[in-house]
């Protein structure tokens, strides 16, 4: 078949659009944005984050102003947020960051664009970690105000470091958890199910077992960092179950960083060579 000759500018390979690694990460973040919180999932996760506010509201209703302070905030963090809400948010956002494109069969649109797969994965991981952190951070802030403000305006400033460390610990844990769940999403068929088992079977089980088994959970290292940072007794108790020795902060930081980097490396190795059939 004869065809007309196209203009050379259109067909020059050098002019074909493409993204490099860092550019690809940046554009992935821009395009994916806060899309992870859209729809029903966003509403459910936002409600989940708002749920603990009921507790200080009831407390306030019964006891009046000036009865509770930063201790209530940390109690709620250690009893509800870190071991429950953080994990659920990380699970759904981390698995969904790429998983929803795979399950939703829209992944071919992304895989046929001139963007390195590694940039796509890293970009989506960052979007997931930041999205989860922003959502949880808003919840922390609301909880902080709800629990500390009744003690008076000064308390809000005095207890600010407690909030700061909590946010920092949460953000670090989101980087690690989201990396683990992205690994699940690109390697196994039922990432949510396996994630639930990891979070609510393994982490719960290991934390309650005697000895050093708790150190094989991510949450233990998050508590260790918070114990070192904020010095709060509640974190110390959680970081030293069975009175085991408190790990140095650097060691826990290395564990979190190692799990994050290792999960991402494995996810990248898989994602780079995987074919998605839709």
């Amino acid at each position: 078949m004869t065809t007309s000759r196209p203009s050379s500018t259109t067909w020059s390979p050098e002019l074909a659009p493409r993204r490099g690694f860092f550019d690809g990460i940046a554009v992935t973040i821009r395009v994916a944005g806060l899309s992870l919180l859209r729809g029903r999932r966003g509403v459910v996760l936002a409600l989940l984050c708002a749920l603990p506010l009921i507790w200080p509201a009831l407390e306030l209703f019964h006891s009046g102003l000036g009865t509770k302070g930063g201790v209530g905030f940390v109690q709620l963090l250690t009893e509800l947020w870190f071991p429950r809400i953080n994990l659920i948010v990380a699970l759904f956002v981390g698995c969904g960051a790429l998983g929803e494109e795979i399950d939703g069969k829209t992944v071919p649109y992304l895989l046929t664009r001139p963007v390195p797969r590694s940039a796509l994965l890293i970009g989506r991981w960052l979007v997931a970690a930041v999205t989860a952190s922003v959502l949880l951070g808003a919840g922390y802030l609301a909880l902080y105000v709800a629990t500390v403000a009744p003690m008076g305006g000064d308390a809000l400033l005095v207890d600010l470091p407690i909030l700061g460390y909590a946010l920092l610990g949460m953000a670090l844990s989101m980087l690690a958890y989201c990396a683990v769940f992205m690994l699940f999403a690109v390697t196994i068929k039922w990432p949510l199910l396996v994630g639930l088992v990891l979070l609510f079977v393994w982490e719960e089980f290991a934390a309650t077992m005697p000895g050093n088994l708790a150190r094989y959970t991510l949450l233990h290292h998050v508590y260790t960092l918070l114990a070192h940072g904020s010095g709060d007794e509640a974190y110390h108790l959680l970081a030293r179950p069975e009175e085991i020795e408190l790990l140095p902060a650097a060691e826990s930081l290395q564990v979190l960083a190692g799990v994050t980097a290792g999960s991402l490396a494995l996810a990248l190795a898989k994602f780079r060579r995987k074919s998605y059939l839709v």
């Binding site: 390979p13 071919p108 895989l111 046929t112």
Partner: peptide, 14 residues
């Protein structure tokens, strides 16, 4: 396969 240099020059309608 996963080659941005090629992917920038093709379009695919699934």
């Amino acid at each position: 396969f996963a080659n941005p240099a090629v992917l920038g020059r093709l379009g695919h309608s699934p």
